[in-house]
Amino acid sequence: MSVVSLGVRALARREILRYVRMPRSTFLPPLVTNTLFFVVFGVIIGERIRSYGEFSYILFILPGLVVLGVTAQGFQNASFTIFHGRWEDYIEEIQTAPLTYEEMVLAYVVTSALRGLIVGVLIAGVGAIFTLLDPDVATVGLAHPLYVVAFVLVVSVLFSGLGVIGGLWATTFDDLAVMNQFIIRPLVFVGAVFYPLSILDPLWRTVSLVNPMVYMVDGVRYGFLGIAEIDPNTSLVVLTVAAVVTVLVDVWLFRRGYGLTE
């Protein structure tokens, strides 16, 4: 007998079907955006940028773009599905079902994380194609595959959990856009996706270390390329703790009925 209840599986099925059946608005946009990133930053500009160590620039930015896709999609999915459910009131179907609050959060977080993971794999695939097309560039490899898996899993859960909070907090669609445009995206762009920390002044390097995105990008880069500027184990522990705390906050908010019952 499965440890995952039929109720959770039904909610998870509903959530996955929702985004799988709308690939034009769920999977195609990040695919197109990241293809453009690879074309502009990897090929056109990348050829003029000094390589980072033994790696070409396109390989250097690939882990960061994977993290960008995973975090953005995980956050976006969880925040949208919960906010839209509240907006249209159909989240009441879940609220009035005999699911525990832990089960509700589990279904939302896992399915949103899955969407992030799928997008992450797609981005890595696009990056791999670009490296295959260029004979002067080494193909994407996995120096430490377990680290890639661990970091991507933790990051996707963390941002899906944050998306749950965002979905419960938002009162308008503008709030969703604000969170994405003014919080998530800036963190990503100053999160060492496109540059190594070592090129920054000591002050900005220190400031950058406050940004959790730096640890995610650096950890995933360690998994892909085997290079890291921060101890990946420390990053992984900190991010795992952050993910667990975020999910616990999600459960607490659901139990309290925050954004749901008043």
């Binding site: 039929l6 109720g7 039904a10 509903r14 079907l17 929702r18 009441e92 179907e93 079902a97 005999p98």
Partner: peptide, 26 residues
């Protein structure tokens, strides 16, 4: 309920299946 609060992403048969599923039905 008095106010409609139905999942509009899916055809109605699927909405019912999901709801039955939430209640632990195979």
């Amino acid at each position: 309920p008095q106010e409609f609060n139905v999942d509009r992403f899916f055809p109605v048969r699927e909405v019912l299946m999901h709801n039955a599923g939430y209640h632990g039905v195979t």
